[in-house]
Design a protein around this nucleic acid. Structure first.
Lengths: 130, 130
DNA sequence: CTCGATGGTTGAGGTCATCAAGCAATAAAT
DNA sequence: ATTTATTGCTTGATGACCTCAACCATCGAG
């Protein structure tokens, strides 16, 4: 049990360090990595588990750095879709690369172990239950 | 890999919800669970991976709620040792109980699976490497 | 005793987080 | 079609977190 706590702490610390290496916050890095495809603000709020008004500020700051762009959705003119700019995509790529580089313990697991770990995590934290 | 991200996110979300259920922040709950034995502020800062000046404020708020107490260390009058009050210990107990209750997926793993998961997490996130 | 290092606090500045209130646009209802 | 309710996003206020620089008190060594 505290093993889980330790693992989660290590993962997030690594993520925070990597994000900080690019002048980003943990939550900003998290948001960028969610933007594999354009998403409306509302969807981001639910994925991040926070208030919509919070997303406004985070996107503001990311937009100010040119990592993200707000686009008006044609179907529903209320929604604003958030899209990664090329610089944003580059940032995501660097974050992913740095993350795996920053978790050397993962590299030492062979394929069988990784599949086992993946399976156990899936069962312990099913995707249906937040 | 994104399985890890998902598991860590689930764990922390659950922790945050449980802590919020007692009017506590995630970081406040984390600090309380670290206080199984008295620790100086400096040690807390390193364990939490944040600045020492940050710990001051968090302990301030916990102390204001009577969950924690600052004690002067006799050996070195500079250091202040943080100690759980009985109410603090009770809060930690409730947090631990609520956490396991809030992760039903963990209950469905048998002993063998749990040992395997524990072993894999230990290897992926060794205790020597923060 | 002086000097440098250490533990903790303070203050300024920025980010995150929630809530209440507001505006614009959609959807539903009579 | 006009009203009504709902939805998506923003704004403002408030509080907690986080870091940095500066500060004070204490310790340790020369």
């Amino acid at each position: 049990m505290e093993h889980l706590a330790h693992a989660a702490a290590c993962y997030y610390r690594s993520f925070a360090v990597v994000a900080a290496g690019q002048g980003l916050t943990l939550i900003q890095g998290k948001m960028l990595s969610l933007l594999g495809r354009p998403l409306p603000m509302r969807a981001l709020a639910e994925l991040l588990g926070c208030d919509a008004s919070n997303v406004t500020g985070i996107v503001d700051r990311l937009e100010a750095r040119g990592l993200v762009r707000r686009e008006a959705a044609p179907a529903d003119r209320r929604v604003k879709t958030v899209v990664l700019t090329p610089e944003g995509e580059e940032a995501v790529r660097r974050i992913r690369a740095d993350i795996v580089a920053g978790l050397p313990g993962l590299e030492q697991l062979d394929d069988h172990d990784r599949r086992t770990l993946q399976d156990l995590l899936d069962r312990a934290f099913p995707h249906t239950t937040g």
